Simulated scan of single mutants.
Amino acid sequence: MASLIKNFTLSIITLVVLFSGCTQPKNLSYAQQIKERTKYYSSLSEEEQIKAVSQYWWKIQFIKAPSYKVQKAALETSPRAIEEIENPTKEIQILAVNKIMKDGSFNIALTKLIESFDEEAQIVAVRHNPQIIQFITYPSERVQLEAVKINPFVIKNIINASPKAKEEAVKRNPRVAKFLR
């Protein structure tokens, strides 16, 4: 009976230690906690980082300069991970656009980030949904042309549309001419 009580007591103590946060100082500021998490997750091996972001995609924010494989694993878990990846490469941007559009989740993340994306990623996005061009303040002529080729009426959402984009839109649908500025 004594050994049963001893084992029970040890189990309770272990649970208290695990769930009370005794492993970290309690008086760290939020900024210090973020710094500690970043230090911890950045020190993990690539395989451990992949495992971490595969379980919880948002942990990517705590990894300094994550590898392509780690970024891809986070995006496979959730396309929202693109919001937490600092300076994503063109390939990662395109992967995120395809994942978001494939899932049918035309979400806020893409509308917020599309302007900062590489031209190639923007083209992929407008090929999926030309309406996204309205979230790009100054789309390149290539992006404009891709959008109007799919839906000429998006020309009305392009401020300072290029002459070529206007011409292409009217060529595809003459009724678009009334929307030109």
Rank of each mutant, 00 (worst) to 15 (best):
T111F: 08
G104I: 06
S162F: 09
K102Y: 08
Q144F: 11
Q33M: 15
W57S: 09
V17Q: 08
I12W: 00
F106Q: 09
I63E: 05
E46N: 04
N160M: 14
P79A: 03
S54A: 11
S67G: 01
A147E: 07
K178R: 12
L10W: 10
N98R: 14
V176S: 11
Y30K: 14
E86P: 00
K35F: 15
V17S: 04
S29K: 15
K156S: 15
V148R: 14
S45R: 01
T23L: 13
K90Y: 04
K69M: 01
E115D: 13
V70F: 05
P139A: 05
P174Y: 02
K72E: 12
V97N: 00
N87Q: 09
I13G: 00
I114Q: 04
S3N: 06
K178I: 12
K35V: 12
S42R: 02
L75F: 05
K164C: 08
H128W: 15
A73V: 00
W58A: 14
N157I: 06
I132H: 08
I50S: 01
E168P: 10
V176T: 13
Q122P: 07
P88T: 03
I82E: 02
I159C: 06
V16W: 07
I60F: 07
P152K: 14
Y30P: 07
E47W: 03
V126M: 12
A161S: 13
I5F: 07
I82A: 02
A52T: 02
T89G: 00
I155G: 01
E48Y: 04
L18W: 06
E48M: 06
Y30I: 14
V170P: 02
P79I: 08
I50L: 03
A169C: 08
N27D: 09
G104K: 09
E167Y: 15
A31K: 10
S162I: 15
Q134C: 05
I133F: 11
S105E: 11
R80I: 12
S162L: 09
I114S: 02
V70Q: 01
F62T: 01
P139W: 14
K156E: 14
P79E: 08
V170C: 04
P88Q: 05
F179T: 04
F153D: 13
S116A: 13
P25G: 10
I155D: 00
I12Y: 03
F8R: 12
F62Y: 15
T23G: 03
S140W: 14
S105P: 01
K112L: 04
C22A: 13
E119K: 10
P163N: 12
S162R: 10
I34T: 12
Y30C: 00
I150L: 14
Q93S: 01
T137N: 14
G21D: 03
W58L: 09
V17R: 05
I85E: 03
S3A: 10
S29Y: 12
F62C: 05
V126P: 04
K112D: 08
E36W: 01
I85K: 03
V97D: 00
Q24G: 07
V143D: 09
L110Q: 04
I85C: 02
A96M: 01
N98W: 05
K26D: 00
Q71A: 06
R37F: 15
R80W: 10
I12K: 02
Q134H: 11
G21L: 07
N173Y: 07
